[in-house]
Amino acid sequence: MSFFSTSSNHPSFWLDYANLFKQKKSKNFEELVFVVLDTETTGFDKFQDRILSIGALKIQNNIIQVHEVLDIYIRQEKFNKETVAVHGILKNSKRKRVEETVAIQQFLEYVGDAIIVAHHASFDIGMINMALKRMGLPKLKNIVLDTGTLYKKTLIKSYLVQPQQHYTLDDLADKFAISKKDRHTALGDAYITAVAFLKLLTKIKEKKELTLKNLR
């Protein structure tokens, strides 16, 4: 692909997606739409591994609409036996699955220009960006928030306690007393992340006004 490959070469679903970003975000926090996202993958190698499933749900004004969730399973060429133990997704289980390109298109339609929230977001976003790259498309344009980083913001800053380098989703679920029943399914993890995110917003609000700027 040449350097001058212009956006006009891109399929219409991408153009529709990209067009959404021309509008400015609302200043009113209650009107902002957040898409909380989790992906299950065949492994942790950005180049070798593939996305197995994408789970996502929307939050607006502290409300999650149950019928508005995204739960996609992707048909696999590549398969990593070792991570089956984690997410329990087998290569040929009976669930309905789609091609990666279809999944990404559905995801873009779902997410629109919403603010993406994920736990250790850089990994999930990286995986999706790699899939986009394979389709010859640019990276995601959304604003991304990481619940791991947000959590660290709520901890008391003092030298007494060295915060851990990383807080896992399990750590957050324990701290906020969220049930871990559906851990390691994309949608289940997305739900845990969503509840943790809402609780984090309350904590952050105690210290400063809730604006998108203050979260980034």
């Binding site: 502290n62 409300i63 999650i64 609409q65 149950v66 019928h67 509840v195 809402l198 609780k199 309350t202 609000k205």
Partner: peptide, 12 residues
């Protein structure tokens, strides 16, 4: 019915 539910988070 459960698919029609909205989950509402309310802070204290």
């Amino acid at each position: 019915l459960s698919q029609e539910v909205s989950i509402v988070y309310k802070e204290k």
